[in-house]
């Protein structure tokens, strides 16, 4: 049971955070050779002792492919699925009728991608071994605890990222690592 990587995409379809813990072979490499002006676009340094890479694959084709796959599958889920309209809950929750069917995860023979979309259009995605059970709660914690506390509440950090800007602040990186490495699924 392993967790391979964690990806975040914003509503402008940009990859704003990547964290990879294991890599046995390189993912699809980036073909673009433009040099980035902003220093936050290059790989962020990790705290000592941590394995893997941070923000090394944000411009890679694999990031774009992953976003494309997630976006398409999320649209399929929205279009095809109906959530039963419950008369009781609509009284207490007038927005119940607007809840759309959302994608939770997709799997191949090699990996499982766990997905969560926030109301503002932020995508959280964890790639893990196919045997790992539902990580929706973990994704919710990453959003509610780590992202909201270290990025949203941090006045020095952007919330609406311009193109190629990534989340690089150390407390966020540490927060993500702490949450994920503490999971039993993390080998």
């Amino acid at each position: 049971m392993t967790i391979y990587s964690f990806w975040m995409f914003d509503r402008h379809c940009n990859c704003i955070y990547t964290r990879e813990w294991t890599r046995s072979s390189p993912l699809v490499p980036s073909h673009s050779s433009h040099s980035s002006v902003s220093s936050t676009s290059s790989a962020t340094t990790l705290p000592a002792g941590a394995i893997g890479t941070v923000n090394a694959s944000n411009q890679n084709d694999s990031a774009k492919l992953l976003f494309g796959a997630l976006f398409s599958l999320r649209n399929i889920a929205n279009k095809l699925g109906t959530l039963p309209f419950n008369e009781d809950t609509s009284v207490t929750d007038p927005l119940a009728i607007h809840r759309k069917n959302s994608l939770k995860s997709f799997a191949t023979g090699k990996y499982r991608a766990h997905f969560m979309e926030t109301a503002l259009g932020l995508y959280f995605c964890i790639l893990s071994d196919p045997n790992v059970a539902d990580l929706q709660i973990v994704l919710k914690d990453l959003y509610a605890d780590v992202y909201v506390n270290h990025v949203v509440k941090n006045s020095a950090s952007d919330v609406d990222f311009p193109a190629e800007e990534v989340i690089g602040n150390e407390s966020f990186v540490r927060g993500v690592d702490q949450l994920i490495t503490a999971l039993p699924a993390f080998a």
């Binding site: 889920a77 095809l80 699925g81 939770k104 997709f106 023979g109």
Partner: peptide, 14 residues
């Protein structure tokens, strides 16, 4: 023969 292509998909409704 679906070793590495999309095998399954889970959503709230299906």
């Amino acid at each position: 023969c679906n070793t590495s292509g999309l095998k399954s998909l889970e959503t709230d409704a299906f």
